[in-house]
């Protein structure tokens, strides 16, 4: 009886295997493996558009995937898969900066160039990190915006993503620093950061907790696309006159921007980010750059990007130079009542 089972299994497999799948790679030319944090995420879908745009211009092909469950070991599986397929470069947005290092080092040993984008991997595991804007400019743009919205005084809180997210923590440290040192923010009382884990429910609940805990709360910064709609929804549901700003997708926030919950929200253009990451990867493959400090590469429409020394938060909470190199697009889009509709269909 079990024999029948196995035969059916085998037939199933054969049928599944003979069904051809679209998205084949043409023979010569470069192949780039794009890896993002999780499949089915609109933000990364937009970034893939950027890779597509660059692929059309530069004539390379790319494959893209992300683990179903957003786990690091899922990303490792995909990296090994890419190595097997003989990609020329891997462009990765890492779920965990440290967990992927071994796998990526193996890729580098096989002659594969590694570019991290969006969320960096540790320096040992990459050739170059491409980021939309320097942490400082991202942080201060949001802070300036919220300061203007609330008239320069009142209580301010931050709703972040995971407590481990390195980019989140970096931005928060800059915001905290500016609030502490910059006299322009002397009248703003910073009440603290809560973590919504990029889960809608958790972000919503944490925001609710904040609102109840600080009835005088005036503004919230939420530098996470996944958490922002939950935060804005919560503020709107509670009917409070709290202003929200943050890094958000336009389609998520159009409603709240129009309702006046947000005066302006920001995001880099993930399409441009993917686009620039592609150009960096191709330049690395072709040997035009090696990922060393001071080199430059040209991204059409974005500008000439310079490779700089990376920085990170050290134990004292200050930004210090670290291993590895990075280049910034330094372009941030703002979504306001006037501009948001242009972006709704893109982001």
């Amino acid at each position: 009886m079990k024999r029948l089972v196995s035969i059916m299994l085998a037939v199933l497999l054969a049928v599944g295997a003979s069904a051809a799948f679209a998205g084949e790679a043409p023979d010569e030319g470069l192949l780039i493996g794009v890896l993002y944090k999780q499949s089915g995420n609109a933000y990364f879908q937009a970034a893939v558009e950027g890779f597509q745009k660059a692929a059309d211009e530069l004539g390379f092909t790319f494959i893209h995937d992300g683990p179903d469950d957003g786990s690091s070991d899922g990303q490792i599986r995909i990296i090994e898969n890419y190595i097997n397929q003989g990609v020329d470069a891997i462009a990765v947005s890492a779920n965990d900066a440290d967990a992927l290092v071994s796998a990526l080092q193996e890729a580098k040993a096989a002659g594969i160039k590694v570019v991290s984008w969006d969320a960096p991997v540790a320096a040992e595991g990459r050739d170059l990190d491409v980021q939309p804007a320097s942490a400082k400019s991202i942080a201060l743009t949001q802070l300036e915006s919220i300061c203007e919205s609330i008239g320069g005084e009142g209580q301010l809180a931050i709703v972040s993503a995971m407590a481990t997210a390195p980019n989140q923590n970096l931005w928060i440290s800059f915001i905290e620093e500016a609030l502490r040192d910059d006299p322009a923010y002397a009248n703003i009382e910073y009440v603290g950061t809560v973590y919504g884990d990029d889960e809608y429910t958790k972000s919503y609940d944490e925001t609710l907790g904040l609102i109840n805990l600080y009835p005088e709360l005036k503004g919230i910064i939420t530098p996470t696309t996944a958490g922002a709609p939950a935060v804005a929804k919560c503020v709107m549901d509670e009917g409070k006159s709290i202003k929200v700003t943050g890094l958000t997708l336009a389609s998520d926030m159009a409603e709240y921007i129009k309702a006046g919950v947000c005066d302006a929200t920001f995001l880099w253009n993930p399409i441009e980010l993917g686009y620039a990451a592609s150009y960096a990867a191709v330049a690395l493959i072709k040997g035009e750059i090696t990922g060393a400090e001071g080199e430059t590469f040209d991204v059409p429409g974005v500008g000439v990007l310079t490779i700089e020394q990376s920085t990170a938060v050290n134990d004292e909470g200050e930004l210090a130079p670290t291993d590895g190199t990075i280049s910034y697009l330094n372009k941030l889009n703002s979504f306001t009542v006037e501009t948001v509709d242009e972006w709704v269909d893109i982001l």
Partner: peptide, 19 residues
């Protein structure tokens, strides 16, 4: 069921948003 949710390989659905 979870694997079928995005159906980006089938229907091009990423996420349902407010709009």
């Amino acid at each position: 069921a979870r694997a079928m949710i995005p159906m980006d390989w089938l229907l091009g659905l990423n996420k349902i948003a407010r709009i």
